[in-house]
């Protein structure tokens, strides 16, 4: 059994994938926690697809592809904000419009711009954690460290802003900057994740571990800790599954993280579907044995209120 785990690690591409998986697990859980409490999941989905518009331009101009992706992602968020704030069009409509239009720009430019057709669209869409370079690993580490430090430094301000935006603004916090910073952080995270899971699946990496943690704990910082562990585990287990089953790595990671979510959904002590069912059954059995149980229980609730 131990051999099954250790043997692949003698290969350098597996070592790189392992490191990257752990860094991404932490980064995605920290940024993803804010996305969940801010309900930015669909925005992340739109941005993750919109980054495709910047790739062919960056390629032709000779810039790093990730830079093109970042600019394009932030630009899509800005256009979205403009449409939302200056028209009667609702958020979901604006997102659908931006997502598809930016993908269309990307696909068109890949065929139209000279030389851009050398971009591997399949790799962009689905990624491959087993094919990452050492440079990508270092970049991911740098982004993760910077991200975690910034969140630590601004934790109390971001907590206030994400919980009660109006209250935070009324206290004089520069809430527009915090909102912009969260969108940029989300876009950077998406860009960093692209080589691993690709544009189609990247949002799962941001959402699933943090959402799993959301069902298990009661505070934002705990969500980040637990989410980081679940995220790192998902990446590493998915990577091994991909290696042994010869399955696509991005999809394997996403499926493992969804399995973790399902476990929490069913068995979370406070929110789990089955846990609640068992608690209810236990309670009705107690009532059957002792009809005064309900009176005692409601007395306790009354005292508390």
């Amino acid at each position: 059994m131990l051999d099954l785990i250790i043997e692949p690690l003698s290969l350098s591409f597996m070592q790189r994938a392992l490191m990257l998986g752990i860094f991404l697990g932490v980064l995605c859980a920290v940024v993803g926690s804010y996305m969940i409490v801010q309900r930015m999941g669909m925005l992340a989905h739109a941005i993750s697809h919109s980054v495709m518009a910047g790739l062919p331009i960056a390629y032709v101009v000779g810039l790093a592809l990730s830079f093109g992706a970042l600019v394009s992602g932030v630009l899509s968020a800005l256009v979205l904000y403009l449409i939302e704030s200056r028209s009667r069009v609702k958020t979901d409509t604006a997102m659908a419009l931006i997502l598809t239009s930016f993908v269309a720009i990307g696909v068109t430019l890949v065929s139209v711009l000279p030389g851009a057709n050398r971009i591997d669209l399949i790799h962009i869409l689905f990624g491959n954690i087993l094919g990452v370079t050492m440079t990508e690993v270092w970049w991911t580490l740098a982004v993760t460290v910077i991200g975690v430090i910034l969140v630590r430094l601004f934790f109390k301000e971001l907590l206030f802003y994400t919980f009660d935006p109006k209250g935070a603004q009324a206290s004089g916090l520069p809430v527009r900057w915090y909102n912009a910073a969260l969108i940029v952080a989300m876009t950077v995270t998406i860009v960093v994740c692209l080589p691993t899971v690709g544009a189609l699946l990247v949002v799962a990496l941001l959402v699933a571990p943090a959402a799993t943690a959301y069902l298990l704990v009661k505070e934002l910082h705990q969500m980040m800790w637990v989410g980081s562990i679940i995220g790192a585990l998902s990446s590493v287990i998915g990577m091994y599954l991909s290696y042994y089953l010869d399955a696509p790595s991005g999809a394997s990671i996403v499926l493992v993280s969804f399995c973790f979510f399902c476990l929490a959904f069913l068995f979370s002590p406070s929110d789990g579907l089955l846990s609640n069912f068992w608690t209810q059954r236990k309670r009705s059995r107690l009532v059957d044995q002792d009809p005064q149980f309900i009176d005692q229980e409601s007395r306790l609730v009354d005292q508390e209120y």
Binding site: V37, K156, L159, F160, T162, D164, A168, L173, E219, L220
Partner: peptide
């Protein structure tokens, strides 16, 4: 206007008063 499912305790909500 407040998301009451936000993962936060009573104590941390009150501490927000002193954030600035």
């Amino acid at each position: 206007l407040v998301d009451w499912d936000y993962p936060i305790t009573v104590w941390n909500v009150v501490m927000m008063a002193q954030t600035v």
